[in-house]
Design a protein around this nucleic acid. Structure first.
Length: 287
DNA sequence: AAGCTCTCCTGATGGC
DNA sequence: TGCCATCAGGAGAGCT
């Protein structure tokens, strides 16, 4: 469940069902799921045995669970198809089960299920000065973070030499934004994805940020966006924000603002959806 | 050195 | 019915 609202839905589920519990054992069924843990899978398993999850944190699309008295945290990234599910220990095994956590209290177990194995789990040190694990120090604050600095972001965005959507997807500039919410915010701000960042004025970026926050808040309230059962909360339930999408995935359907058919353009090996009338292509696009 | 392309993987879908 | 191409909510290694 990849973008900020979906990952926040999962974080809340972990907060409710996993925080405060002590790990009994961890089983790793696919080595690719721990590839980001450089000391290796056996070290990953050994470090987690007997540890207690202190809390559930998130920045952008990254989740992490600080480990009590260890000075480190379990980091999770869901990639394109990762799920963290809380299920009874007796629940049947499922396809694509990659990692299983059982707990000392014999309560529900935590499963990492990931069809495409783009997701990853690792353990990383927490430093006193940083408020995120070292491994994800390069990830920028997300627009929902109270400490997100609007003025700095606006300056940084305008000084880039690229198109606005590329910049929005750069997790070291602003995190948590992916293909869906970039398209939705751009639609709301009536801005084309190829608009050169250099041409953006401060008020226009301010409006774009507001659009991002608005669409993400609405999506979170709806439990996130899911088109299929791949994107679910820790209980396996889908969100329903897909019904509220204005641009993403709506090729050929009428723009709900002006009635023009939504257009799909190839973009970074996937797609961008725009209303050709509300979001006219810039005269000198930066591809 | 910032910006861009490609690659990792599995499965669904649609055209021929 | 195959078989092949295309597409999918991501990110980071490795180019220029």
């Amino acid at each position: 469940m990849p973008e900020l609202p979906e990952v926040e839905v999962v974080r809340r589920g972990l907060d409710d069902h996993v925080v405060g519990r002590t790990v009994r054992a961890v089983e790793v069924y696919h080595p690719r799921s721990t590839r980001r843990h450089l000391p290796g899978t056996s070290d990953f398993v050994a470090q987690l045995a007997g540890t207690t999850f202190e809390k559930a944190s998130r920045r952008g699309k990254y989740l992490w669970l600080p480990l009590r008295d260890r000075g480190s945290a379990l980091i999770a990234h869901l990639g394109m198809s990762g799920q963290l599910l809380v299920v009874p220990p007796s629940a049947p095994g499922v396809e694509h089960l990659r990692v299983r956590f059982t707990f000392a209290d014999a309560g529900p177990e935590l499963r990492f299920v990931d069809q495409r194995t783009f997701g990853a789990l690792s353990i990383s040190e927490l430093t006193d000065r940083a408020d995120v694990p070292e491994r994800i120090a390069h990830i920028a604050r997300d627009p929902v973070d109270p400490q997100f600095d609007d003025a700095s972001f606006i300056t940084a965005l305008r000084s880039r030499h690229t198109g606005v959507k590329r910049a929005l997807l750069d997790q070291s500039l602003i995190s948590g934004v992916g293909n869906i919410y970039a398209d939705e915010a751009l639609w709301q701000a009536k801005m084309h994805w190829a608009r050169p960042t250099r041409t953006l004025t401060r008020p226009v970026v301010t409006a774009l940020l507001a659009a991002l926050r608005e669409v993400m808040a609405a999506a979170l309230a709806a439990g996130g966006t899911s088109f299929d059962s791949l994107y679910v909360n820790v209980n396996g339930a889908s969100g329903y924000f897909d019904r509220s999408l204005e641009a993403y995935g709506r090729e050929g359907e009428p723009c709900r603002r002006c009635g023009t058919a939504i257009r799909r353009d190839p973009f970074l090996n996937r797609s961008s959806y725009t209303c050709p009338r509300c979001q006219p292509r810039p005269r000198n696009p930066h591809w």
